[in-house]
Amino acid sequence: MLNVIWLLLLAMGIIVAALNGNIEVVTSAALDAAQGAVAVCFDLIGVMALWLGIMKIAEKGGLIRVIAWVMRPLMVRLFPTVPPRHPAMGAIILNLSANMLGLGNAATPFGMKAMQELQQLNPDPEQASTAMCTFLALNTSCITLIPATIIGVRLSFGSANPTEIVGPCIFATSLAMIIAVSLDYWLRTYSRWGR
């Protein structure tokens, strides 16, 4: 699936550029993007180190287990293949909480930590487990209670009411979450992908 999407994006881009007679944009776009990707990762190093450092303290003190225990009734239903006391549960909860608060740079490290914990339960390390798919469905459709960046942009262009979009956001994102989680449940239970 991903192989096809990746190849399609690349090939269609190059073909369109060639037909339009500006093939040189392909070279500059590809090289700039490659450098840009490394820059993104370098920016991530600092925040990743900071948050996983803090998380390690919380983990050793048993705080992650406490958080996981509190959320257990919901989590065991969403993640039936993960043992309720597993550290992955705590990391997933931290990631989703950070997402909800709009703390993007804290959410990513927690999310990767969750993936590493889930990977330890994964029978096939090359292939995503069902728990990973559920986690990512939740993650990509997660509610942001404060879309801070976009409120800032609206403010800077003189919006009369920059926060008026928060209500619509919560409506749209709730719907997206319900659909994503239901689809994930259906796929993992009934489709051939679920096996």
């Binding site: 190849l7 369109v16 500059s28 700039d32 490659a34």
Partner: peptide, 13 residues
């Protein structure tokens, strides 16, 4: 990922 997305976007596709 970023290379293929960027080429797709810059080409006008």
């Amino acid at each position: 990922m970023m290379v293929s997305i960027s080429v797709f976007r810059a080409s006008g596709a």
